[in-house]
Design a protein around this nucleic acid. Structure first.
Lengths: 245, 245
DNA sequence: GCGCTATTTTGACATATATCAAGTCAAACG
DNA sequence: CGTTTGACTTGATATATGTCAAAATAGCGC
């Protein structure tokens, strides 16, 4: 089996796609089996909204952890800066996803998050979310699911970093982007990457030249069409073969 | 900064070391700020205990998820089997740690866990734990912390796999083993590894020969003393330098 | 549109790690 | 005590990816 970067099942996709047409937090990222009253209470919790311009920090390394954030639009990257100034990207977060889960155990953010494009987020104060989920079992269950999914996601990346070679990693990355695009009702084959080759490489443990070469090679093989950050997938199934699924 | 494989702070270490002298679950892995009544209720939840012999499965890939498990003694590895039969190790779990967190989001285990030596675990039925943590805020908080710590741990490994070279990974691995040994009141410099070079390599994304060569090299440099799986750390501080902390 | 800049691509070469193949060693067993 | 077996070490070589450098391209303000 292989779970790398592909951990979201079909029912979730359907639910999210429907929910996102009315892009409110409670539907965007939370379960649909709440009573109207519970929904209202949840909505009250999450009605704080903020905008971030490209490059703005959502939080910095060392900041005190207070809230999770649901991304309503745009996208963020999370990263760690090494002593020598090198950046290591630890995640790309897209609209509809929850950001900030790393910090619950420490109270302090261990990485920093910044907007890759102009973006909007809903703030989810952790203490209120915890309080409310104590009263609403299905909400509690969902919070656990969100956290566990992050674990599964990370372990997928570990698998990928530990056992795949450059081109396989890239293939997995593209499939993941494709799938997350599809979840939000966008094309599964037309990708507009928001990140540079350098950032992709940092995320996948590769150098930017290796990323570029792999893209070029895929193009030569007729798997994709590359035009800088606009990438069209021509042979989804062959990419899937490459990562073994 | 660098969080790789070293995410447990000093207060946690102290607490756990004290707690483990009376190796009962509620103290082993749960917070100490519960009332006596709450403790009792928690104890009732966790009094199911089981033994596993070397090589026994704690759970298999595809099994339905019902419970988390607290390891009382011994150690486990978690792994994924690829189609071609290759094993990829995704984690080593030692006494005092919680195993099974990957499965909460899916209801199904995505990897399998087996005992690396004769071991004992306490079963923590998830539904009961969830129910109880709804009533006890500090327990809820702790459950979240445990989950989040797993996320941090995984991200630490991602960092390690993505940015470190073979010997740096090995150094980080040894430091991590040393620290986890110390937590349980054992020597921080005398390590008895429970896993083979192959398994270490699988976990760190290296071949077994590379692991072996790196150990030999460390020995030549006077950093460690290697006698098969018994490893003595001679220069902790130099190992720390290697991983940048 | 033009020119400036950052990003991306491509090439030649270096190097870390994988691969293949012997050997060594230690535990297990007759 | 010798044999067997599996794990570990070591060596020679191959290969994927990194490094350094230059050219091509895309993005963007004017």
């Amino acid at each position: 089996m292989n779970v790398a970067l592909n951990d979201i099942n079909q029912t979730e996709i359907t639910r999210l796609r429907v929910a996102c047409s009315n892009c409110n937090l409670r539907e965007l990222c939370l379960p649909v089996d709440l009573t109207p009253d519970e929904m209202t209470r949840l909505e009250e919790l999450s009605n704080q909204k903020r905008s971030y311009a490209t490059g703005d920090y959502l939080y910095r390394s060392g900041d005190r952890f207070k809230s999770l954030h649901a991304i309503r639009s745009g996208s963020f990257k999370t990263r760690v800066l090494h002593e020598d100034g090198r950046e290591q990207v630890t995640g790309f977060l897209m609209a509809g996803e929850i950001i900030g889960l790393d910090a619950i155990s420490t109270d302090i953010h261990t990485c920093e998050a910044l907007a890759m494009e102009d973006s909007e987020v809903c703030e989810l104060p952790y203490s209120k979310l915890a309080e409310l989920s104590r009263e609403i079992p299905s909400l509690q269950r969902h919070v656990h699911k969100i956290m566990s999914r992050e674990i599964v996601r990370d372990q997928g990346i570990m698998l990928l970093l530990g056992s795949m070679r450059a081109e396989e990693r890239l293939a997995a990355f593209l499939l993941n982007m494709s799938q997350r695009n599809a979840i939000h009702g966008m094309s599964a084959t037309q990708l507009r990457l928001r990140m540079s080759r350098l950032e992709i490489g940092s995320y996948l443990g590769l150098k930017l030249e290796t990323v570029s070469r792999a893209f070029s090679h895929f193009q030569d093989e007729g798997l994709i069409q590359v035009k800088a950050r606009a990438i069209e997938i021509l042979a989804l199934s062959k990419l899937r073969e490459m990562v073994g699924k």
